[in-house]
């Protein structure tokens, strides 16, 4: 299967603060993430707010260069290339944003919104662009008579369809979706998830699907990466991860997700504390302060991801607690 995007030990740090007399700090927003995106497959990135999911999305869409590490798109390196090449590379990765109320221009009609990416990249003449936009509307289930309507005339689900259509106008190979359904109601969410899966099947897209909702991830993903404080703590095929989570944080997330199935409500864990600040992460395992299994080794030595039964787990005690 074709690897469309590969990240190797990608790091993104931000310098912050300092001011006149203060000491500047470094926020380690993403700190050593590796993954491969395959054509027609979905990699879901899960984690709480502040864990670096969205920064990862910004790096993957080439909006920001990684501070260190390597990112290749379709085998081509993205670091150290000239602006023109980078622009070309960018075309193959497009993004769908979380909030369709904020990500669409309220003063542009659906048609104009969909044609804009083509205009910017000087694809075809006006007639061809309109033709392509109309075809895309049909693909995502928008009616032809909605061409001249403005975003405010649509419901949230319809708007997300427009946003998805816009992302697909340049025929990307990879789509980065940052919480695409979390602003939507359940019945609408189902429609958008179905659409995303249909499009993936039809166009062979690779999805980097960012979400905090494990039940959605469980439905759409092929592979899941759980992030905590900028670092991946567990990465595995969906079935393995949900059947046998290896990292205590993954277990905590699964236990905290409310379930409509009374049988699955047995898993009772008490949850304490909040995410540590990424500005000043603890020296050992970032999760140690909230972990029931933490030992002296956890607070002193940072665990690196290592393979275990087909999972990649960053925990010193993964064997004994799994």
């Amino acid at each position: 299967m074709t690897v469309l995007m590969q990240a190797h030990d990608v790091v993104r740090h931000y310098k912050v603060g300092g001011g006149l007399f203060g000491t500047p700090g470094t926020v380690k927003a993403v700190d050593g993430v590796s993954f491969s995106l395959l054509a027609g497959k979905t990699l879901a990135v899960v984690g709480e707010s502040g864990c670096g999911k969205s920064t990862l999305a910004r790096v993957a869409t080439l909006l920001e260069p990684p501070t260190a590490g390597e990112l290749t798109i379709d085998g081509a390196a993205t670091a150290g290339v000239d602006a023109d090449t980078r622009r070309k590379l960018r075309l193959s990765v497009q993004m769908v944003f979380q909030n369709p109320y904020g990500s669409l221009n309220p003063r542009k009609t659906v048609g104009a919104t969909l044609m804009e990416p083509l205009e910017i990249n000087q694809r075809g003449d006006a007639a061809a662009r309109a033709q392509a936009a109309r075809e895309m509307m049909a693909q995502v289930g928008l009616r032809d008579d909605q061409w001249g309507r403005y975003p405010h005339m649509f419901s949230g689900g319809q708007r997300q369809r427009i946003a998805i259509a816009r992302a697909l106008m340049l025929n990307p190979r990879v789509v980065v979706a940052d919480e695409p359904v979390s602003a939507l109601d359940v019945s609408i969410q189902a429609q958008v998830l179905n659409l995303l899966m249909d499009l993936q099947e039809r166009l062979g897209l690779a999805y980097l699907f960012i979400s905090h909702d494990l039940s959605v991830v469980r439905h759409i993903a092929d592979e899941v990466m759980v992030m905590y404080c900028g670092r991946p703590v567990e990465q595995a095929a969906k079935a393995d991860l949900f059947a046998q989570p290896r990292h205590p944080y993954t277990r905590m997330l699964l236990a905290a997700t409310p379930s409509v199935d009374p049988a699955r409500r047995q898993l009772q864990v008490s949850i304490k504390g909040e995410l540590p600040s990424p500005l000043n992460p603890p020296p050992g395992c970032a999760f140690a302060s909230r972990c029931a299994h933490a030992t002296a080794r956890c607070t002193a030595e940072r665990p690196d991801p290592r393979p275990l039964d087909g999972h990649m787990v960053a925990c010193h005690h993964a064997e004994s607690i799994g």
């Binding site: 189902a190 959605v216 439905h219």
Partner: peptide, 15 residues
């Protein structure tokens, strides 16, 4: 329509 109730099914039933 809940994804949780549709495990193993490819498409979610919608309203």
């Amino acid at each position: 329509a809940l994804p949780e109730r549709a495990i193993g099914r490819h498409r979610l039933p919608t309203i």
